[in-house]
Write a protein that binds this DNA or RNA. Sequence first.
DNA 1: CAACTTGTAACTACAATGATTACAGGTAAT
DNA 2: ATTACCTGTAATCATTGTAGTTACAAGTTG
Lengths: 149, 149
Amino acid sequence: MKMSISSRFSVGIHILTLIEINKDGVSSSEYLAGSVNTNPAVIRKIMGMLKKAGLIKVQPGIAGAELAKDLSDITLLDVYKAVNVVKDNELFSIHENPNPDCTVGRNIQNTIEPLFFSAQGALEKVLENVTIEDVVKDVFEKEKLHVKR
Amino acid sequence: MKMSISSRFSVGIHILTLIEINKDGVSSSEYLAGSVNTNPAVIRKIMGMLKKAGLIKVQPGIAGAELAKDLSDITLLDVYKAVNVVKDNELFSIHENPNPDCTVGRNIQNTIEPLFFSAQGALEKVLENVTIEDVVKDVFEKEKLHVKR
DNA sequence: CAACTTGTAACTACAATGATTACAGGTAAT
DNA sequence: ATTACCTGTAATCATTGTAGTTACAAGTTG
């Protein structure tokens, strides 16, 4: 009775973060899958989306992926859009074909749509203001705390 | 490959708006279904959720529903939560069991979670600032424009 | 050539959605 | 009290997205 936005998004962030932190090593789909804890084919599928969106560089036959842009130039919104978790401007679905013979039926869609866009926009703006660089820094921050214990 | 938040949300808003605009009439599930253009049982199911959340008054055997609160006291966030479209604080799903032997794996969840909460919070805040009263007014506004043409 | 990789397709199990039918149980008017 | 209507709810169904798995073609490197 309840849905969630696909974990492809969080996995996408994980992948990009790990590619950066492992930049001196080789980030193959198997390596990444080992950290995410899933199947390499799942990772390759998501990598394909990230590649298509111009976020990473990967080549058939050649092991490993690299970031295609600067760390600070990749926002979570970029990842969010790349992994196709939500239809463009359709985070909320509006019920189709309301009755045009009813005052509410013939106007509700036009009333609701901008409200939904606004809510969706607020969400996306937050994602736009966080970069993979921020994530990498925070992972290191958390790691320091972890080690101290 | 893409998901949306259930239309139960938009239908819930439609229902509440129509109950208000039709307050001098009887808003039975069949009547409401006629405006939304769906099955009465679907409406009754959503009405059950709205009732459970204290937004409307309905009684078994008695035709029609009424708002249980003042128009201006029902926000879209109330409706959103009432119709159970999203797990609480889980709009985004995070991939489970990342590898604890990897710097990224053991920290990424704690890094990502607050970011997701923040994005979700921004979305909910927008919904919280719109009431059914606003929706009703806008429907009438749109209706006026419609008639003018 | 051999051993590795990426890129995909095909298939699976599972869950949410939205519609539909059916019916138990409540209410009200004649 | 019988009839006619309503709400509440369960069961079923087709469709779709998710996430994992296996398999393999095609590219690359030593």
